[in-house]
Design a protein around this nucleic acid. Structure first.
Length: 388
DNA sequence: GATCCACGGGAATACACGGATG
DNA sequence: CATCCGTGTATTCCCGTGGATC
């Protein structure tokens, strides 16, 4: 912890001791500048990227590992830092007058979860490469692509593109991604991140790199680091951190979510320490299995609004998708037609944000209905939505 | 005028069941 | 008995429209 942080903490403690000092530092989806305890992994990634320090592009690589191993956090942080060493491109028009440094390879990080169309893919790339803002409408996909080609050609050294969550979508999408990478985007080297074993990975990587799940002790350290940044002193016992690490099976995302919800619960109860009961309640809030909250928060605003309405509903009053649809469209949180709400619910079930569970005892004619179960921690989602 | 996308609406298909039919 | 059919519901799929922007 730096001196500023120590001083700020003392300052705050001066008047009113509060358990949660910094929600942002505690958020399980917060951008982490320096992922804790993953130095070795970062070294291995840098080993692979070694050619860029000679101004060359590294081979395409597929990085994989289990959920909650910190893949996204590490790659996102690493690319952000690497890009800081690259000069930002001016506009296409000015490329000829630009002074290029000899190692001007550019670095871009792209989360596939937030890219739902080819247009968006090109747009995000171009937006990341240029200072100037890129129009989102009134411009054709082909036009966007040709501009992108110009910009990439203008970088001289090319770009290294990190594509996170490559196996998040269906196969057809990933194949389209391969075509895009092969075709219009040279010179580009990519670093894809996913969960699937390399054999099941549809992109053709020249190399692979595996990231293991957190060791339990490392995860405990991560939790204690988070607690020291976000909570008041002595708020989290080492043993409780250990308990969280065990109960979440070494999944860092789940562990941080439990810490966040437990701390929030204690905070709201006016306590200054997290207790075992807080953790038990927080673990109960986390469904099994659960998807990343980042994925939920990456959804379009209207879908998130539907989810906000959904988590406030009592399970008994929505035994079917239709009933749930009616309840949600009747609530004043969303301003969408029932048709749209229903479609959203089905779409979110499709991608695993919620899950349809077939009703077991169903009499009468017709196809048996399903009820919806959440696949994310509702309390965490509620709090994170509030702070935005 | 051209572009993309979100939304709304509804058609098409899948599924389950009971009863009729071969 | 096996299969088909009709009915009712659930689920998936598709497309037109309109807003916003260039």
């Amino acid at each position: 912890m730096d001196i500023d942080a120590r001083i700020r903490r003392r300052w705050r403690q001066g008047h009113q001791p509060q358990l949660i000092q910094d929600y942002e530092a505690l958020s399980p989806v917060a951008h982490i500048d320096e992922p804790a305890g993953r130095g070795l992994v970062i070294e291995r990634l840098l080993d692979h990227l070694e050619p860029v320090f000679d101004g060359k592009l590294p081979p395409d690589v597929y990085v994989y590992g289990p959920p909650g191993a910190g893949k996204s956090a590490i790659v996102a942080a690493l690319f952000a830092h690497l890009e800081q060493f690259s000069p930002k491109a001016q506009s296409v028009i000015h490329t000829s007058t630009r002074v290029t440094s000899p190692t001007a390879v550019r670095f871009l990080y792209l989360d596939r979860r937030q890219v739902t169309s080819t247009f968006e893919f090109y747009h995000r790339l171009l937006d990341g490469l240029l200072e100037e803002t890129v129009p989102e409408q009134g411009i054709s996909t082909a036009e966007l692509r040709s501009r992108l080609q110009d910009v990439i050609a203008g970088t001289r050294r090319g770009i290294v593109l990190a594509i996170d969550h490559v196996d998040n979508r269906n196969e057809a999408d990933t194949i389209a991604l391969q075509e895009v990478l092969d075709g219009p985007l040279a010179p580009v080297s990519w670093l894809a991140v996913g969960r699937s074993a390399p054999a099941k990975q549809p992109l053709s990587a020249e190399a692979t790199l595996e990231i293991d799940a957190y060791q339990r002790q490392t995860l405990v350290d991560v939790l204690m680091t988070r607690a020291s940044k976000g909570l008041t002193q002595q708020a989290l016992d080492h043993e409780l951190a250990h308990s969280i690490a065990i109960q979440t099976g070494g999944n860092a995302h789940h562990a941080l979510t439990v810490l966040f919800v437990a701390a929030d619960r204690a905070h709201r109860a006016g306590r200054t320490r997290v207790t075992e009961a807080d953790i038990t309640a927080a673990v109960a809030d986390l469904p099994e299995p659960a998807v990343s909250l980042a994925r939920v928060l990456a959804l379009p605003a209207n879908k998130q609004a539907v989810l906000q309405a959904l988590i406030e509903l009592d399970a008994t009053e929505c035994p079917t998708v239709t009933a749930t649809t009616d309840r949600i469209s009747a609530s004043d949180v969303v301003d969408l037609s029932p048709e749209t709400v229903r479609r959203f619910l089905y779409e979110m079930a499709e991608i695993g944000i919620v899950e349809r569970v077939r009703a077991e005892n169903h009499d009468g004619p017709g196809r048996p209905p399903s009820r919806l179960e959440l696949r994310f921690a509702p309390t965490a989602f509620r709090r994170l939505s509030e702070t935005v």
